[in-house]
Amino acid sequence: MTNSVLYEAPGPRAKRRARYTSIVVGVALLGIAAWAVAQLAAAGQFTMNKWGPLVDPSHEYFAALWNILGQGLVNTLQAAALSIALSLVIGTAMALTRITSAPWYRWAVVGVIELLRGIPVVIAIFFAARVLPELGIELPLLWYLVIGLTAYNSVIIAEIVRAGILSLPRGQSEAAYALGMRRSQVLLTVLLPQAFRTMLPALISQLVVVLKDTSLGYVISYPELVQEAEIAIQNLNNPIQIYFVVAVVFIAINYSLSRLAVFTERRLSRGRQGPSRPARPHRTPAATGNATGGGH
């Protein structure tokens, strides 16, 4: 995509210059890559000794390794799905409480949201895993991870939902009240469904954050992908190769989700504006950046 904010369409001279510079830069980058590959090769990182268990089906550990990584991925996806579903329910409830609460206790709701947003998610998970057993609540490891992730993400989703509801035109709720609906009816049947529609891209982006954060199950020894990879590495002694595969898996899933978020955003904004009107020429930082603020 050429960025017309910074430079105009290049003429023949600029094109030639750009081509030469591109070649020089490209060669320099290839040089750096070649150096890195040479270093890794010199360190013996490309031998079958290291890659065999991952790529050679006849290797004695091939099946066992992919089995353990697959199980790790399943556990990761399970934790992420449970966390996002619970966060959605609790986050929506929190947002509605914050919107409908009387001023005398609204500060309490806001306080809880601000406190949970201010602590690192890894602390939330660690807290769940250490404090709940002390209080006599013994759960499978999965649930400590889910509770920690939900505590952190539900407040972010609460903010997304609140922003979605507040961004709706005033006429929506005014019309609903004029029809004689009660406040709960207005919120649940008129405002929330529309808010969910505009929130969908932000929710999908949040799913990326949750998926990445399930890797923190590592600190409480929940057998998710990174933990399983670590166990495999202790036996096979090929950390770079296995983490390469783990990174590729995460990047592939998260990249597809990000594309899905962008796609939904485009579709929704097209539907809203109608086909005849031109798309907005420039995206605002709020639209492209992580509007939730506490995510990444």
Partner: peptide, 23 residues
């Protein structure tokens, strides 16, 4: 694309195992 989509923990492990191999 790489750094936004991989978990921080995986990036950290790569640093710890990868950088020494690069000298």
């Amino acid at each position: 694309t790489v750094f936004r989509n991989s978990p921080l923990l995986v990036v950290l492990f790569f640093m710890a195992f990868g950088l020494p191999e690069l000298g």
